[in-house]
Amino acid sequence: MANYMVRVELLKAGWDDYEDLHAGMEALGLMKTIAFSDGALRKLPIGTYYGSSSLDITALRERIRGLATPLSGHGGPWIFVSQSETWSAWLDLA
């Protein structure tokens, strides 16, 4: 399984839409928090997710598009998926 960093921006969406997005992303194994090497759980920026998946990058993007499209206004969603083995961050505690 590969690790992925994903950014999803919903256009003209409200908090309820993002809550639905969070639930769908969690079902895909993508979380809005990330564990640091010291074990501390940190919050990712809104619309940013990290997790593992057995799907390849294109299949994962399409699954995300399928769940995010009904939540986004015209012209969206905007989705960026990258395979991520190493990372560094400065984030608030979850």
Score class of each variant (00 low, 15 high):
Ser82Cys: 14
Leu44Glu: 07
Leu93Lys: 02
Tyr49Leu: 06
Leu71Ile: 12
Pro77Trp: 07
Gly24Tyr: 01
Lys32Asn: 15
Gly75His: 06
Tyr4Leu: 05
Pro77Ile: 02
Ser54Gly: 04
Asp20Met: 05
Glu9Pro: 00
Thr86Tyr: 11
Lys12Gln: 14
Ser54Lys: 07
Met31Lys: 07
Ala68Asp: 07
Ala23Trp: 04
Ser84His: 06
Leu21Trp: 06
Ile46Thr: 09
Tyr4Phe: 14
Gly39Pro: 00
Ala13Thr: 04
Thr48Asn: 14
Trp15Gly: 07
Arg42Leu: 15
Pro70Ala: 07
Val81Lys: 15
Met25Ala: 01
Gly51Trp: 13
Ser72Thr: 15
Met31Leu: 07
Gln83Thr: 12
Ser84Asp: 05
His74Thr: 09
Tyr50Ala: 09
Lys43Arg: 15
Gly73Leu: 08
Trp90His: 06
Val81Tyr: 11
Leu10Arg: 00
Ala89Cys: 07
Gly14Ala: 04
Ala13Gln: 03
Thr33Arg: 04
Met25Pro: 05
Pro70Phe: 15
Asp17Gln: 06
Asp56Phe: 01
Lys12Asp: 09
Ile79Ser: 14
Leu60Glu: 02
Arg63Leu: 01
Leu44Tyr: 03
Leu91Val: 03
Lys32Asp: 14
Val81Met: 08
Phe80Thr: 14
Glu9Phe: 00
Trp78Gln: 10
Ile34Met: 11
Leu93Asp: 13
Gly73Ser: 12
Pro70Trp: 15
Ala13Val: 04
Val6Leu: 11
Asp20Gln: 11
Leu60Asn: 04
Ala23Asp: 05
Met1Thr: 12
Leu10Thr: 02
Ala23Tyr: 03
Tyr18Lys: 01
Leu41Glu: 14
Leu71Pro: 01
Gly73His: 10
Tyr49Gln: 02
Glu9Thr: 05
Leu21Asn: 05
Glu85Asn: 13
Trp15Asp: 09
Thr33Val: 11
Arg42Met: 12
Leu41Gly: 04
Leu21Gly: 00
Val8Ile: 05
Leu67Phe: 09
Trp15His: 08
Lys12Asn: 10
Leu55Pro: 01
Gly39Asn: 07
Asp56Gln: 02
Thr33Asp: 13
Pro77Arg: 10
Phe36Lys: 12
Ala27Arg: 07
Gly14Ile: 00
Ser53Ala: 14
Ala94Gln: 08
Lys12His: 05
Leu28Pro: 00
Ser82Phe: 08
Thr48Cys: 15
Arg63Trp: 00
Lys32Leu: 01
Leu11Thr: 05
Tyr18Glu: 01
Asp16Cys: 03
Met31Asn: 08
Leu41Lys: 15
Thr48Ile: 08
Ser37Met: 12
Pro70Glu: 14
Val8Glu: 09
Trp90Thr: 09
Val6Cys: 11
Thr48Ala: 15
Gln83Leu: 10
Ser84Val: 14
Thr58Arg: 06
Leu30Cys: 06
Glu9Asn: 01
Ser53Val: 08
Leu30Val: 02
Ala13Pro: 00
Met31Tyr: 13
Tyr18Leu: 03
Tyr18Gly: 01
Ala35Met: 10
Ala89Val: 12
Val8Trp: 05
Leu41Ser: 13
Met25Leu: 11
Thr69Lys: 15
Gly47Glu: 04
Leu67Asp: 09
Ile79Cys: 09
Lys12Glu: 14
Trp78Cys: 04
Ala94Leu: 04
Ala68Ser: 14
Tyr18Met: 02
Tyr18Ala: 02
Leu11Lys: 11
Ser54Glu: 13
